[in-house]
């Protein structure tokens, strides 16, 4: 397999970055990723990202939480089953409150677990192929090409309005999978 180069174009403008993404998608180069200092709807549309599945983790957490809270309250009440003031041992209304609080707590835990699993954080390896300007005011588009095509890719980025370019050594297929890199 021919050696691969990864080139990052930095853009001051979101629209230009989105234009570069569109251009790469229709080319022989491979779009690897984009970076932005804020969540960018335009870039997301250009890349074509799907809806995040984090909500399913949140939902699962919430359902588990409700039953955990309600059943914890019911179980502990049943362990000392004295009827007080004629009220049921397993009282629905107060135990629903415990269930509600646990619903929120576990839904948030599910949300956090979903975020960690989906984003892959913490992931410090990515910082090796990153530019600090990307957290400031620059948008980044990273694409892969054969090493011989690197000048053409750099010229493309410059033509799209890139304010700076950076090149990184390419990775093998195993490395790409580990990073969850997309294929155009």
């Amino acid at each position: 397999m021919a050696p691969e180069a990864h080139v990052m174009g930095l853009f001051a403008d979101e629209t230009a970055a989105a234009g570069a993404v569109e251009g790469i998608k229709g080319s022989r180069w491979r779009l690897l990723r984009t970076h932005s200092p804020i969540p960018s709807r335009r870039l997301a549309e250009a890349v074509g990202v799907k809806k995040s599945p984090v909500g399913w983790f949140t939902l699962a957490g919430g359902i588990i939480g409700f039953f955990t809270g309600f059943l914890l309250a019911a179980f502990t009440a049943a362990r000392w089953g004295l009827i007080v003031s004629g009220k049921p041992v397993v009282a629905l209304v107060p135990f629903f409150i415990v269930g509600f609080e646990f619903t929120i707590l576990f839904a948030v835990f599910g949300n956090v677990v979903g975020l960690i699993l989906q984003t892959g954080l913490p992931r410090y390896r990515d910082l090796e192929t990153y530019d600090p300007r990307l957290s400031g005011d620059q948008y980044g588009v990273v694409a892969a090409c054969d090493a011989a095509e690197r000048p053409a890719l750099e010229a493309f980025f410059t033509g799209q309005g890139a304010t700076a370019l950076r090149a990184f050594a390419g990775e093998d297929e195993a490395g790409r999978k580990a990073h969850g890199l997309s294929h155009a």
Partner: peptide, 11 residues
């Protein structure tokens, strides 16, 4: 290790 990748922002 936050890098502001579109995947990170999406989630």
């Amino acid at each position: 290790g936050w890098t502001g990748r579109h995947e990170q922002w999406r989630h």
